[in-house]
């Protein structure tokens, strides 16, 4: 590991100035990804600006009935927070499906969004990887691609984003508050992460020095009916093969007794399938205004997966996403369909 200076930030403004003014500086929060990457030689910052003392650790209701989450809120605290558990169960489940108890005690909300891919070639500095070393090639394309993308990949990169939380946040229409050298701005969570295109080295649209300070959830009363389902190689403590975050609101008139209700609103996002959390807009369009039946669930999944382009080892993900999405939709409409 390269030697580095360490500085404890006392205010966001000075922390941002310290990092923005030094191309070899990085923020340190929970460290669960960065410290590992420094050991592996993937990241070589010469200055770490520790932001864990900044007052970004509040979970608070907002005036529009939503919730604001400080970037330093630990994953374990957020998962257990009564506001999150009762109003956004999909987010609590996604948090609890990730990593282990020890890691969730360290990992932060902002850091989770900025964690990097678990592609084995990205993590192995002896192999070509366009994300780690631009222009060196993609080892996964003709290599071990079981964990890789089926949607939105490019000829340069087929890595997937590993976050569970980001998938739930994508479904919930969360926004990310970013403070940078020139002030504060906010963006939809779904606009934070990029598809790889020809620049897989860029995970997000953030500039060097930008600091995520908060994540905001809109008021969404019907998200009480939401769920996160994660499919993985072992029952716990593993990254997703695929995952589905869903929320459903049914028409409340319900039609005639015994009739299958109609879906008024629906949110679906997919994990483990793309370079970013994948909002399943085509599936949502298919489901809006139709009855909550198995056939309609399947048609929605098929609509989303029509563009799927597996690369070999990961063809199993297509039916796995389809079946998981159908299963989550059944779970969310169980007492009706």
């Amino acid at each position: 590991m390269k030697p580095f200076d360490y500085r404890r930030a006392v205010a966001p403004e000075s922390a941002i100035a310290d990092v923005a003014g030094n191309p070899e500086a990085a923020y340190l929060a929970g460290g669960t990804n960065l410290v590992d990457h420094m050991k592996l030689g993937i990241a070589e910052p010469r200055l770490l600006v520790d932001i864990t003392s900044l007052p970004l650790d509040e979970v608070a209701e907002t005036q529009d009935g939503g919730v604001s989450i400080g970037a330093n809120v630990r994953n374990s605290d957020l998962a257990a927070h009564p506001l999150i558990r009762s109003r956004y169960p999909v987010l609590s489940q996604a948090l609890l499906s990730g990593a282990s108890g020890q890691l969730r005690n360290l990992a932060t909300t902002g850091g989770n969004l900025l964690q990097r891919t678990r592609c084995v070639y990205f993590q192995d500095v002896t192999t070509p990887c366009n994300k780690r070393a631009p222009g060196s090639g993609c080892s996964a394309l003709e290599g071990y691609s079981r964990y890789h993308a089926i949607l939105g990949a490019s000829d340069d990169c087929i890595a997937v984003h590993p976050s569970d939380i980001a998938v739930a946040l994508a479904a919930l229409d969360a926004t990310v508050v970013v403070q940078g050298p020139s002030g504060e701005r906010s963006m939809a969570l779904t606009d934070l992460h990029r598809l790889p295109d020809s620049r897989p080295d860029l995970d997000t649209v953030l500039e060097h020095g930008d600091l995520i300070t908060a994540v905001r959830l809109p008021g969404l009363p019907w998200a009480e009916r939401s769920a996160y389902r994660k499919v993985r190689d072992r029952a716990s403590y593993a990254f997703a093969l695929v995952s589905v975050a869903g929320a459903v609101e049914l028409e409340d008139d319900g039609g005639a007794p015994g009739e299958v209700p109609v879906i008024r609103q629906v949110r679906i996002a997919l994990g483990g399938v793309a370079h970013k959390p994948w909002r399943a807009t085509l599936a949502e369009e298919t489901l809006r205004g139709v009855q909550a039946t198995h056939e309609n669930f399947r048609a929605a999944a098929d609509a989303e997966l029509e563009r799927a382009a597996p690369v070999g080892d990961n063809a199993f993900k297509v039916p796995m996403v389809r079946n998981t999405m159908i299963s989550v939709l059944h779970e969310l409409t169980r007492e009706y369909s």
């Binding site: 360490y6 340190l28 669960t32 410290v35 590992d36 770490l48 374990s76 108890g101 890691l103 005690n105």
Partner: peptide, 19 residues
Amino acid sequence: CTVLLNGRRVNSCLVFAVA
């Protein structure tokens, strides 16, 4: 490497002592 850090269980291998 699990220890209790300020009362909470963590992986001590992923924490820089300086912090």
